[in-house]
Amino acid sequence: MPRLSYRKALTRALTDEMTRDESVFLLGEDIRVGASNVTPGLLKRFGPDRVLDTPLSEQAFTSFATGAALAGLRPVVEFQIPSLLFLVFEQIVNHAHKFPMMTGGQCSVPVTYLVPGSGSRTGWAGQHSDHPYSLFAHVGIVTVVPATPADAYGLLASAIRHDDPVVVFAPAAALEVRDDVDFATLAPVPLGRGVVRRAGDDVTVVAVGHLVHDALAVAEELADQVSVEVFDPRTIYPFDLDGLLDSVSRTGRLVVVDDSNRSCGIAAEIITSVLERVPLVAPPRRVTRPDGAVLPFAPVLDRAVQPGREQLTAAIQLTMKDRS
């Protein structure tokens, strides 16, 4: 079976959606040459009217996309750097997100914001290493964090077809993931639907994005001690609470590993939403970035503030010892 890399899956989804629907177009910085290595070849294939390389004017081109969407097109805006989303938070939240409600349903704003390389890329330091998906969940924008190549393809395709703004966070740490994939099976993945990546009986670990792979590795390491179920929500907002409750109501224990800052991160929301609905046999735990984290430059410091396998292992073991 052919191997598909996460990054090539994104390229393939863009290509397929642009081929299928001529209202889809791309804009962003350096996309004509594919500086993020997601758009190479697309300019040649689709031409400069559908692959718009932009000046460094993130706020203007983000709102340009809003206007184009109001006029019936389906823009995909690429951001090379996750922290640029802070710069365009105003344009996305105040305009793209609010227009359907503020106009009383007169319009839709089908824009996809693609971040091919979110989170730490060891060595990129404070202003290039954020992973701000929880921020978008908080304001109610559809937010996906695919973990696998097939999901990268399927969630990006669904995002482009969706009639509201969607942010697609492709974790930097997942970009090199490769899977055996039957290309014929590549298809849109429904938004808002999680998946159990590994079945288990004792504890449910919710892992977001690249941390799914860490959670699977930890589950294998601990296999002779504890039976770990790994739940990948895939979409952060709207969250597949029913899917998670189905898992947690069997295992009775919950650990969330989330590459967000701790306060108001999605882990807090996931845990609270579960506790509102089902009792657990042990207190839930979360492994996150620290409160207010700014990723430091030095590699050992960078790693020290990211959620990792050791902390997840410890959290699982503590949860197994605890009783409510």
């Binding site: 340009f64 996309a65 809003t66 006029a71 019936g72 344009q91 305009h95 503020m102």
Partner: peptide, 23 residues
């Protein structure tokens, strides 16, 4: 739309006009 964020709407309008002309 009237838009209450000062300076925000010209970029939106530019995108909308561009898109209409593309179509």
């Amino acid at each position: 739309g009237a838009n209450a964020i000062v300076g925000a709407s010209p970029a939106i309008l530019t995108g909308a006009v561009w898109a209409h002309r593309q179509r």
